[in-house]
Design a protein around this nucleic acid. Structure first.
Lengths: 110, 110
DNA sequence: TATATTTATCGTAATATTGCAATATATAAA
DNA sequence: TTTATATATTGCAATATTACGATAAATATA
């Protein structure tokens, strides 16, 4: 079917997988890394930096914005994007809780 | 096209997105959580726990095994799965480095 | 107003993912 | 060897994702 039966899973599980899905494409990873690297807003040059067509970049930015990890301000004819820090922190807490499950797991059975 | 142009991105970016892709489905999140929760190997009951058909679970387990996050030992007619702890730790280091980029980012421009 | 610039949206083609029925495989037990 | 049990694989249908050309929308400038 290709449809994840989200109602079968907990809200937390769906949230984790939603964040992960956004990180599940190297272009979005690259976009986020660039936003962090320049340590400021970015206006326009993402198309040159990433190397994908402008509509494709716009689509990836939309997904990042939809899940709340970036925000964009219109500045003249261009749009200025940057990391949404509060939401990034909240996302980190959710993901880290999932990743840190191993610290309570002591058995080594296989 | 639907094809991620992996050669356009760094190995690190591709690795991060590969891990994230695996976490990008709630069923695999649920499987991993269950493996951690029971704190031991699991033989067979995943189909009952997750609520998807046996071939579907088998497919998700395969993806988790392919990326190295779980390992499976044949025990009689069943297979015993558990977390691959060394690889889980390595994965955590990679993902955390990506997630912790915000600690070096002080600007708040938007 | 007309033009240039930048970003978003639409439409569509190519590919990937998901889910499961049917079936194959492998091992244990009778 | 036959049967039962557990898992893997195959094949396929439904859906999702990705990419981009064409175009629209929005704003700045001449």
């Amino acid at each position: 079917m290709g449809l994840a039966k989200s109602e079968m899973f907990t809200d937390k599980q769906n949230l984790i997988s939603s964040y992960a899905k956004v990180f599940g494409h190297p272009a979005r990873v690259a976009i986020l890394e660039h936003l962090f690297a320049i340590n400021s807003c970015i206006c326009g040059d993402l198309v040159d930096v990433i190397g994908l067509a402008q509509p494709t970049i716009s689509q990836h930015l939309k997904e990042l914005k939809n899940i709340g990890l970036i925000k964009g301000n219109v500045e003249g004819t261009s749009v200025c994007y940057c990391i949404h820090k509060e939401n990034w922190t909240a996302m980190k807490a959710t993901i880290n809780k999932f990743l840190d499950q191993d610290i309570n797991c002591n058995t080594d059975c296989c």
